[in-house]
Design a protein around this nucleic acid. Structure first.
Length: 136
RNA sequence: UUGACGGUCCAGAGAGCCGCCUUUAGCUUAACCGCUUUAGGAGGAACUUCCGGACUCCGCAGGGAAAUGCGCCUUGCGAAAGCAAGGGACACGCGGGAUAAAAUCCGCGCGUACGGAAAGUGCCACAGAAAACAAACCGCCUUCGGGCAAGGGUGAAAAGGUGCGGUAAGAGCGCACCGCGCACAAGGUAACGCGUGCGGCAAGGCAAACCCCGCAUGGAGCAAGGCCAAAUAUGUCCAUACGUGUCCCGCGUCAGAGGCAGAGUAGGCCGCUUAGAGUAAUGGCUCUCCCGGCUGUACAAACAGCUGACAGAAUCUGGGGUAUGGGCCGUCAAACAC
RNA sequence: GGGCGGGUGGCGGAAUGGCAGACGCGCACGGCUCAGGACCGUGUGGACGAAAGUCCUUAAGGGUUCAACUCCCUUUCCGCCCA
């Protein structure tokens, strides 16, 4: 598959998955976001992502736009994140996620803070060889 | 030109790259997955859930009652809800005429959830003598037995109004005009009602209080409802093992590796859609053009920069209500110019 | 998606259509005490005002009524239920 695709199998969609990740996973906040993450069950190499958007964030148009921007930011940077992990993002306010650039900045910033970006060391090193990290 | 109102239309366009959902065909696979490919992919309000209808399940012999909703008339559209046009009545405003001043009258505009208050019940706080049975605080008159309801004040509302006569004082007690009621009734499909006669005046308001009259309505909702169906528990069948026995059949017991059953949880499918249900797709970036707005350089033209209304389908569908950017047409008003 | 319920001082919560804010908590002041708590008493929606007082106020807007927190309609916010 292409490097930037984002099919259904990369998304969390079962209620039990959400419940287990939020209850027993790790949690970190920052950049107007909350992130829960948890190592995936056995045999899964890919990353999976879920989004939780509260009604307090705004009406349906605002909520849908925030989800699309976060999903796009995740899609473009998926191969830079730690694989074999399930992620759940939940935005806390829509102002800090108003544009695609802001959403990407917030998502990457929070993942770096959580230590879920193994490619960071490679980027800071000689050359950013993403394929190495992806193969792990 | 601006504003208000009414009507009507649109909801930026075209490319490129990366993606998403459904789908056609092919390759691959045990199957899923995956790859290539075909076609399609938000709205006028998708919002609200205020009324309808389809559809599904439940209930139901028939009749009545209850409960709920609606309520001027005619016509048209519609399955219904509802919408439109015209008319009537009432309320308010403006203008005209009349007048000492009003009301009544005429015209125009605007609005109305607009059947019934002489079927019954209830309520009308405070104030006030009295709030619907009429009564009498101050008062007026008096032959001191009583008579009166004009004046006072209260109140949202005080049991017709104004004037003249009348009287002890008064009073529709009498008269004129107005108002009110009843009957008849030109006219009108009807709501209504020109008008005529009668009645001295009874019958205050509230039905978005109970209610009466007329009309309509069974209840719940796609999370409706239907189908398949792990695990576990239950029931049952059968083989094996053990006991009885020399052995087999048979009988009994333990344990469930297995089969079946009905119910049914997790889960899945249908319902479901030429957009379609699953953490729920319809997106991100770049360029060009168009439209509107703001800012700057500017008299203007032109150029540059910034910005893009309300809002996201969830079974389908008809209305009502609300939010909101712009184009065009019409009517009215104001200002400016001629 | 569908079906319901509610919104009243700083907070919890009352209020037949008739003086809005009962009652409790909190807060302020005073009393009691050496002091604090507890207890007792008074006050306590907002604006203007020296005060007297005037005006506004039951989520918002409109309607019915002499009179609306209450009845009716529209909008908005909050909450609950249905697999």
């Amino acid at each position: 598959m292409t490097a930037q695709g984002f099919p259904r199998s990369r998304r969390l969609h079962l209620k039990n998955d959400f419940k287990s990740i939020i209850q027993s996973g790790h949690k970190i906040q920052g950049f107007g976001l909350v992130l829960w993450w948890k190592p995936a069950p056995l045999g899964q190499e890919d990353v999976r992502v879920g989004l939780v958007v509260s009604r307090k964030l705004g009406n349906a148009v605002v909520r849908n736009r925030v989800k699309r921007l976060l999903r796009e930011a995740f899609r473009l940077n998926r191969k830079r994140l730690q694989s074999g992990v399930d992620y759940i993002f939940s935005p806390r306010n829509s102002d800090s996620l108003a544009t695609a650039d802001a959403a990407e900045y917030a998502l990457l910033g929070l993942c770096r803070k959580a230590g879920l970006m193994p490619s960071l060391s490679a980027e800071q090193g000689l050359c950013g060889d993403d394929e190495n990290n992806f193969a792990e």
